[in-house]
Amino acid sequence: MIGLDVYLYPDGIRVAEPDDIIRWEKERELYDPHVRLFVALFPYNPSLMSPNPNKAEELPFQKGQIIKVYGEKDADGFYHGECAGRFGYIPSNMVSEIPVYDGDQKLELFQQGFLPEAYCSPPDSCSSVPEDMKVRRMIAIFDYDPWESSPNMDMEDELPFKVGDIIYVFGEMDGDGFYYGDLHGVRGLIPSNYVEDLPWN
């Protein structure tokens, strides 16, 4: 006796093709709570932007694109996931998790492929960075702990970092000599004399 996978359509039953089975397996993944959806906050081209030697293992994506992520980020700050039918690594500071946990909603979003430009998660993560703002990559040349070294009263708005950390900086330096940047998905002010430019290529 031969077993066949069948699928019930509104207009009847038909035998499942191999492509159907692959698609169903991918759809079923989204009902797993360990599989999450993220949205790209910026466009990312590993061949031009990645500091890693194994750039081919990273995923390129566009701003607003929805990415399926498996598990937690690794020690280097990368997730492993799927985007546009490709699998690879994703820098965690270029994406933000979409707070959707219902399997049906996750499936619908992933099939949609992109989120509207107005969407941000968390709500203030995109609004503070205008669409046309220049994004630069900088590297920390000294350790910085705001609680020990900051001259400011509002030091909770500043980012602590270590030598060698790569920080994404938005816009220009303010009048107090601070940049506004992102380190591993956390944003805040960084003193300009503790960092230097790190070219994308």
Score class of each variant (00 low, 15 high):
residue 1 M to H: 13
residue 2 I to L: 10
residue 9 Y to A: 11
residue 9 Y to S: 11
residue 12 G to N: 07
residue 13 I to V: 15
residue 15 V to F: 05
residue 18 P to N: 07
residue 21 I to W: 06
residue 21 I to C: 03
residue 33 P to G: 01
residue 35 V to R: 04
residue 36 R to D: 00
residue 37 L to T: 05
residue 38 F to Y: 15
residue 38 F to R: 05
residue 41 L to W: 02
residue 42 F to A: 03
residue 43 P to N: 09
residue 44 Y to G: 01
residue 44 Y to I: 02
residue 45 N to W: 07
residue 47 S to P: 00
residue 47 S to A: 14
residue 49 M to V: 06
residue 50 S to P: 00
residue 54 N to M: 10
residue 55 K to W: 03
residue 56 A to L: 09
residue 56 A to V: 03
residue 59 L to C: 02
residue 64 G to C: 02
residue 65 Q to W: 02
residue 68 K to A: 02
residue 68 K to H: 01
residue 69 V to R: 03
residue 69 V to W: 02
residue 75 A to V: 12
residue 75 A to Y: 13
residue 77 G to P: 06
residue 79 Y to N: 06
residue 79 Y to E: 05
residue 79 Y to H: 10
residue 80 H to M: 06
residue 81 G to H: 08
residue 84 A to K: 11
residue 85 G to N: 07
residue 92 S to K: 13
residue 93 N to P: 05
residue 95 V to I: 15
residue 96 S to T: 15
residue 98 I to Y: 07
residue 104 D to Q: 11
residue 106 K to E: 06
residue 110 F to S: 04
residue 113 G to W: 12
residue 114 F to V: 07
residue 116 P to V: 03
residue 116 P to N: 08
residue 117 E to M: 03
residue 117 E to D: 15
residue 122 P to T: 06
residue 124 D to M: 08
residue 129 V to K: 13
residue 142 F to M: 08
residue 142 F to I: 04
residue 144 Y to Q: 04
residue 146 P to Y: 03
residue 147 W to L: 09
residue 152 N to I: 11
residue 153 M to D: 12
residue 158 E to S: 12
residue 159 L to P: 00
residue 161 F to S: 10
residue 165 D to M: 04
residue 166 I to T: 10
residue 166 I to H: 05
residue 167 I to K: 08
residue 168 Y to Q: 04
residue 170 F to E: 05
residue 172 E to L: 01
residue 172 E to R: 04
residue 173 M to I: 14
residue 173 M to W: 01
residue 173 M to L: 10
residue 175 G to V: 05
residue 178 F to V: 01
residue 180 Y to I: 08
residue 181 G to Y: 08
residue 183 L to G: 05
residue 184 H to G: 07
residue 185 G to Y: 11
residue 189 L to H: 14
residue 194 Y to N: 05
residue 195 V to C: 14
residue 196 E to T: 15
residue 197 D to T: 09
residue 199 P to I: 00
